[in-house]
Amino acid sequence: MHKEIQIKRYLPEEHAEPFWQTFRVPYDETTSVLGALNYIKEELDSTVSFRWSCRMAICGSCGYMVNGIPKLGCKDFVRNYPAALRIEPLAHFTVERDLMVAMDEFLQHLEAVKPYLIAEPSEPHKPHRQTPAQLAKYKQFANCINCGLCYAACPQFGLNPEFVGPGAIALAHRYNLDSRDQGKAKRMPVLNTHDGVWSCTFVGFCSDVCPKGVDPAAAVNQGKVESAKSMLIQMFRGGA
């Protein structure tokens, strides 16, 4: 079986503009989109550039747009597409070459929300206690693999690159919900702004494309409730 695969190429050292290139690739039931790309690189055109590593949907390297939808190349299969495949770099990011986008744009947002446990030192030689119920409260949001698919799905991020975005907010929320954490007050100022949770209009597509079931849209909108609360508290404190 063969399939036509179109790739949106960008070779800034040779062409000023991106262009489409078509390849014919053999496939079977198990061929992933990433597998097809690797076939192209090894057999047809070694200049095609893309990121990948674990090929088991946990490292988060291989996010691309496949027929207009953000996908992990290793967890999306050629068999799913009866017609041709069109592979593009992740939407809403700056493209630096072929399928390579500037992931720093995501990392800056991630760093801004202080995504780490902020807590007074407890007993240094003993773990905290945390019941399975307390763990369950945030566990889903801790499953984010930083692949960036949710950013490529989010039109608000597309319109406003300053929007902190679904993935980073999900991780901020993950720490806010952690029973061991005391850093919420430090994270909320970032989330309270227009570029924080309030840029979100609950399109919800971010959660649809998330390969790990994180549901970042839920995190952002739970964040709105928290943000409203924290702003009210601030208002009253400020007034008093």
Binding site: Y10, E17, G68, V95, E96, A102, G158, L159
Partner: peptide, 16 residues
């Protein structure tokens, strides 16, 4: 060198 496609006004017609 890099490019960044602008989101078109019709972005919401892209898919279902």
């Amino acid at each position: 060198m890099a490019y960044k496609p602008n989101l078109q006004r019709t972005w919401w017609l892209q898919h279902r």
